[in-house]
Design a binder for these strands. Structure first.
Length: 485
RNA sequence: AGCGGGCUGGUGGAACGGUUACCACGCGUGGCUCAUAACCACGAGAACCUGGUUCAACUCCAGGGCCCGCAACCA
């Protein structure tokens, strides 16, 4: 639940995916959810800054590039661009798209490292593990098959490798973190995730390794300050994007001052798989560096596709851009927002997308708009005052403050349905004169209000509706032509 | 092994210690003709198993079954 209602500023971020492959439908979900929040708060008059971007420095990116025989730089440029494009395709209203390979970020990470180091929270320690020369990765014993080999390279023995890495003194922040989460000073939504995080913290936090040997990373990533033989661990690096995007290490930069330094809410939107990094590592890192903390984290569930786990390496990746091309970006947005729990896992199915499209968008919203437009053809209906104010639509606002996108949409659809009933009982097509006029005023002003409420979810559709009902009302082609299948 | 989540009509979801168990899709019957074979009304159809707590359990507890996720780079 977003606190500080009536707030004047909001910083909102998505996580930055690593770009070893194409964007999938799960990325689209997070984009869309964060976008609704950003658009909603902007509409309320909140000064909102919305950040997204990509993690270019992951070792997996370098590995994937190598597999394709591409230069790593070229490879991440190409793939990062796909994520940025997906944002455009889905009408994601981000204010900035950051890439962790940018110099300003690298510089910020270096400064951050040094701040943490200065605070005495970085030390060197030997790390020993099982290393597969084929994958060039460390594995834990549980990940190996009965013969003690990794799945990719059966028959190849793993070597026990010891290397010296830098570690972050996370253990020092144990009780501080516990209090941070328990008190709600860092608000984690939903509760299940909060409890999970809390349980993880209480189990005893171990210091974690924040560097890899440059030999293993092949120099891809950000070098440890004053020790080029080590590359900064990708999570330590990636999380810092949330502030380098605002200008850090320049703490005087206007963006940083406005959106990070002050008391205004800072909201991270993320998936359940990375909650540990965001709710444990990140606050501790910031505290160590002496910087302000995020105030809220909204943690969404994961999507399966037709019942299967999304796997970047397996073949079941649904390309959200292709779906958007086929059905339109707004139907995809609607489906993701209306038919999934914001907090739990859900299953993406193209069949259900189509059913939803016909039932809710074609038969519901689209048909209703056509009905009203035809009934009111040639008329002009004077506007009836502002609509989005918080007094009027309490359930809608409450839903959005609680990240309940489906609920907010249900609120709108209930009202749409009431208009259909109204038309049926009033039979305006049989009326004329002032009796007709009264019906039309009601229908048109209500549809305008609903367009406003719809704007964060379906911005282009809302705009079309508003345009159609501005001035002399004219019929228009169907907003969502019915699908046959 | 460990940690976590789940099991509600055909499908996808919701709520709750006491409701005729809610919503949407789909399905059936009737109505309407402004509308995108759309819309409206009515209807049929459900709690994984076993035990316990309780005046009362879908809801709480215990055991079992099945499914799913995590485990040093997954949104």
């Amino acid at each position: 639940m977003l606190r500080f209602s009536g707030m004047s500023r909001l910083y909102i971020t998505t996580t930055i995916p690593y770009v070893n492959g194409d964007p999938h439908i799960g990325h689209a979900l997070e984009f869309v959810q964060a976008d609704v929040l950003a658009r909603y708060h902007r509409a309320l008059g909140t000064e909102t800054y919305f950040l997204t971007g990509t993690d270019d420095n992951a070792m997996k990116n370098a590995q994937a590039a190598e597999k394709e025989g591409l230069d790593v730089r070229e490879f991440v440029d190409r793939n990062s661009e796909k994520f940025r494009k997906l944002g455009d395709v889905l009408h994601i209203s981000f204010d900035q798209f950051i890439r962790t390979s940018e110099d300003r970020h690298r510089e910020g990470v270096g400064a951050f490292w040094q701040a943490v180091e200065k605070n005495g929270d970085i030390y060197k320690k030997k790390y020993r593990g099982l290393y597969c020369g084929g994958c060039e990765l460390f594995y834990s014993p549980e990940e190996l098959n009965e013969k003690g080999e990794c799945a990719e390279h059966p028959g190849r023995a793993l070597e026990e490798v010891e290397e010296e890495n830098y570690f972050f003194r996370l253990s020092k922040y144990q009780s501080w973190l516990e209090k941070l989460v328990e008190s709600g000073q860092l608000a984690l939504t939903p509760k299940v995730r909060r409890n999970e995080v809390l349980a993880f913290i209480k189990r005893e936090l171990k210091d974690f390794s924040i560097s890899r040997s440059a030999r293993r990373t092949k120099g891809w990533g950000i070098p440890v300050p004053n020790d080029p033989s080590q590359t900064i661990y990708v999570w330590f690096d990636a999380l810092i994007n949330y502030i380098t995007a605002l200008g850090y290490p320049d703490q005087k930069s206007p963006l940083y001052q406005t959106f990070w330094e002050g008391k205004s809410p800072k909201l991270h939107v993320l998936g359940k798989g990375v909650s540990r990094f965001h709710a444990v590592y990140w606050p501790a890192m910031l505290q160590s560096a002496g910087l302000p903390l995020p105030s809220e984290e909204f943690i969404h569930g994961y999507l399966t596709v037709e019942g299967e786990k999304i796997s970047k390496t397996a073949g079941n990746v649904v390309d959200p851009a292709a779906i958007a091309r086929e059905y339109g970006p707004e139907p995809l947005r609607y489906y993701l927002l209306a038919k999934f729990s914001p907090f739990e896992d859900g299953d993406f199915s193209e069949l259900r997308l189509k059913e939803t499209y016909n039932a809710d968008l074609a038969n519901g919203l689209g048909n209703l708009v056509s009905r009203i437009a035809k009934l009111a053809e040639g008329e002009e209906v004077k506007n009836q005052g502002g609509s989005l104010n918080q007094e009027n639509f309490k359930a809608y606002h409450r839903a959005l403050k609680d990240f309940r996108f489906e609920e907010a949409l249900r609120f709108i659809w209930v009202r749409l349905s009431k208009l259909d009933k109204y038309i049926d009982t009033q039979k305006p097509w049989k009326k004329s004169g002032k009796f007709l006029g009264k019906d039309l005023r009601h229908l048109v002003s209500e549809i305008r209000i609903l367009a406003d409420l719809l704007e964060p979810f379906l911005p282009k559709t809302a705009e079309k509706i508003k345009r159609q009902f501005r001035g002399k009302i004219t019929p228009a082609p169907p907003l969502f032509p019915r699908l046959r299948f």
